[in-house]
Design a protein around this nucleic acid. Structure first.
Lengths: 315, 315
DNA sequence: CCTTATTATGCTCATGTGGAGTATAATAAG
DNA sequence: CTTATTATACTCCACATGAGCATAATAAGG
C-alpha cells in the first residue's frame, strides 16, 4: 500500500538524513505587585528552554526538567502554545533545522527559590504598548502610531498602503476600532513586519527607528507574545487565574490580577457579580484589613468547579 | 553565561545524540451532501502525512507538499492543531521518538482530483456518537452510556467511581448536563481511557466490548478528534465556514454546512438573523430553485470582512 | 384549477447578559 | 469629627439570543 510504503520509508530514514533538533521553550508566568511577570534567563533575556531528549518521558516532562534545572522552579499548570520552525526568525543561519515547541506555565511567585541568572521581569517591559490600565500610553500615540502610519505610507502602491493602515488600525485600535487585548501576537508581528522591533533588524543595518522594549533571544519575544495572547484569552472561559493567586485572597486582589494580565481595567461591581454568579469562589469567613478602608472578605477558589464545569471564567 | 552555555551545548549536540523524527499530519476537511468529510489514505485509514525534511521551507510548506503528493490535492486554508509525542499512543514500540505536528486544512470537494488510494470519508464514520442532527443516536443510549457507566463503576474505590461518572456525564451530556459539541476530543479520550476504542487495546487482549467506529493508524483518530473540536469551536468566532462553501450558495446550504460540522441543528430564523446582521454575505441578485419550494436568494461571501473584523462567525 | 407539501422570509416576544451608574457601609488617618 | 479609601448592594438600559407565529413563493399531485 502506498501509505504503508511511505511510512516504512520514513522509519528507515529516521535519525539519519534529517538534521532536526527539537527545543522545548517555556513561558512561565506569575503575578506579583499587580504586575504580570515572566521568568527569564540571563542578561540577553531568554526564556527557559532546552532540547527534547530521548530520556524525556514526554514533551511536558522534558519541559519541566529543563525549567527546574535552569530556574529551580517546579511547574504546576502547563499548556502547549505553538510549534515554530522558521529558520529566519531565530537569528543565526544554521543549516540544521530547529523546531521550537512552546508552552505556557502558570506559577505563584511565593514558591520561587533564589538563583543567580534568572529574573522575574514584567512582561510589559517587553511590550510597553500592551499595558492600558492607566489609559493609552504616550508611547503609543507619540511614537508607535506615527511610525506605523509612516510604514503604511511607504508601501509600493496605494492598495497596499490602505491595507497596511487597516491592519494596523485593527491590531492597535486606531480610528474607530476597539482595542482587543487578545491581539497581542498580531501587534508584535505587525511591528516586526514594519521593522520597528530589534529582532526584525538582525543581519540588516539598523534604521534607528526602533520602538522601546528590549529584544529577546532568537524568537522568544514572539513566543512570549503568543503566551500572553493565549492567557488573556483563556482567563475568559476557564478558571485559570486561580493558578496565579495565593490560596486565600480578596475579590479586589483577584480583580487586580485579572487586570494585570489583560492590561485593561474592568468595572468593579460587574466583575464581582460575574465571579459570584459563577460560584467560582467561596468565603473563608475571615476578613482582610490590610489596605485601610472597609475590610474585605477573604475568599478561596472552589476547586469543585473544575469537576463541575470545564468552562466558566472571568470576564 | 549559563544560558549561553546551555544553548551552545544544545547546538553541539544537534543532529547527533537525539533520535527524533518529525512528522507532519493533516486533517483535511470538506463538506459535501451535508456530510463533513475527511481525506484518508489507504484502507487502514491514515491521515495524509510525511516527515518534515531539510528541503521544506517551513512546516506548512512541508505539509502542503506531502498532501499534494499523496492525494493530488492542493491545500488552501491551513492552521496548526497540536504537537503530539506520546510514545505509547502510536502503536509500535520503537526507541526512536516521533513528534507529530498536526494541522487542520479546509477544502472544497469540487477541487478534488481522482487518485486510487485516498477517500473522503464522513468523519461520523469514525465518531458516530458525534452526530446529533437527527437526535441522540441510539448507539449512545443503548451501548455507549451503559458501557461508560460500567467502566465508572469498575473503579477501585467509590471516590473514583463518582469522578469517572462525573467526567463521563460532562463529556457526553448525561444527566442534567448539556451536550457541548466542542468536547469532541475529551469524549474520544474518555473512551480511550475506558478501553472502549480499538486503539486503546493495542498490545493488550481485546475485551470484546468495543464501541462502533473504525480505528485509524497510530493516533490519527485522536488527531482527527482534535481537528473536529477545533473546527467546531472556530466557526463560532471566525468566518471559516466559507472556506468549505462553493462561491455561491443559499442561506440554507450554509446552515446545513454549519450543522454538518457542529453535529447539531440550529434555529433557522435565528441563524439567518445572525449571518445577516454580521454582514458576512451579500446577495448575488440571482435565485436558486433547485429544491422545489420558494426559490432562495443566492449569496456570496463578503471577503472584505476578513479585513474589517478578525472576529465574527456563525452561532 | 385547486390543494398540499416544501422552502424562504419577515416579525414578535420573553429572557438573559453585560456595561455603566448610584447609594450605602465600614474602616484608617488626620 | 471629618476625609479618604475600600467594600458591597441595587438599579437601569442596550443588546444578544432562544423560540415561536405568520406570510410568501414555488413544485407536485389530483
Amino acid at each position: 500500500m502506498q501509505d504503508n510504503a511511505t511510512r516504512t520509508g520514513k522509519r528507515e530514514r529516521a535519525g539519519k538524513d534529517h538534521d532536526v533538533s527539537v527545543d522545548l521553550i517555556a513561558v512561565v508566568v506569575a503575578v506579583a505587585d499587580q504586575e504580570p511577570r515572566v521568568l527569564t534567563i540571563g542578561e540577553a533575556n531568554g526564556l527557559p528552554s532546552g532540547p527534547f531528549e530521548l530520556g524525556h518521558r514526554s514533551l511536558q516532562f522534558g519541559l519541566r526538567t529543563w525549567v527546574e534545572q535552569q530556574t529551580g522552579h517546579r511547574l504546576g499548570y502547563i499548556e502547549q502554545l505553538y510549534t515554530f520552525a522558521d529558520r529566519d526568525r531565530i537569528g543565526d543561519e544554521r543549516q540544521e533545522r530547529v523546531i521550537s515547541i512552546s508552552y505556557l506555565a502558570l506559577a505563584r511567585m511565593d514558591q520561587v527559590a533564589g538563583s543567580p541568572k534568572r529574573a522575574w521581569r514584567s512582561w510589559y517591559d517587553f511590550f510597553p504598548w500592551e499595558d492600558r490600565r492607566a489609559g493609552i500610553p504616550l508611547l503609543v500615540t507619540e511614537i508607535l502610531q506615527p511610525r506605523l502610519l509612516a510604514w503604511a505610507s511607504g508601501a509600493v502602491d496605494a492598495t497596499f498602503c490602505g491595507e497596511r493602515r487597516r491592519r494596523a488600525a485593527i491590531a492597535f485600535g486606531f480610528d474607530d476600532h476597539d482595542w482587543n487585548e487578545e491581539f497581542c501576537l498580531q501587534r508584535y508581528e505587525l511591528l516586526y513586519e514594519a521593522g520597528l522591533v530589534e529582532e526584525a533588524m538582525r543581519g540588516r543595518e539598523a534604521n534607528g527607528a526602533l520602538i522601546p522594549g528590549p529584544a529577546m533571544i532568537a524568537d522568544h519575544r514572539r513566543i512570549l507574545a503568543t503566551g500572553i495572547a493565549r492567557l488573556r484569552s483563556k482567563i475568559k472561559y476557564r478558571p485559570v487565574v486561580f493558578e496565579l493567586m495565593p490560596p486565600v485572597f480578596t475579590l479586589l486582589q483577584l480583580q487586580r490580577t485579572v487586570e494585570a494580565l489583560a492590561g485593561v481595567t474592568v468595572h468593579k461591581q460587574n466583575f464581582r457579580r460575574l465571579i459570584e454568579q459563577q460560584d467560582l469562589v467561596e468565603e473563608t469567613g475571615q476578613m482582610s484589613s490590610d489596605t485601610g478602608g472597609r475590610p474585605a472578605k477573604l475568599f478561596r477558589f472552589r476547586h469543585a468547579v473544575l469537576d463541575e464545569r470545564p468552562s466558566a471564567g472571568t470576564k
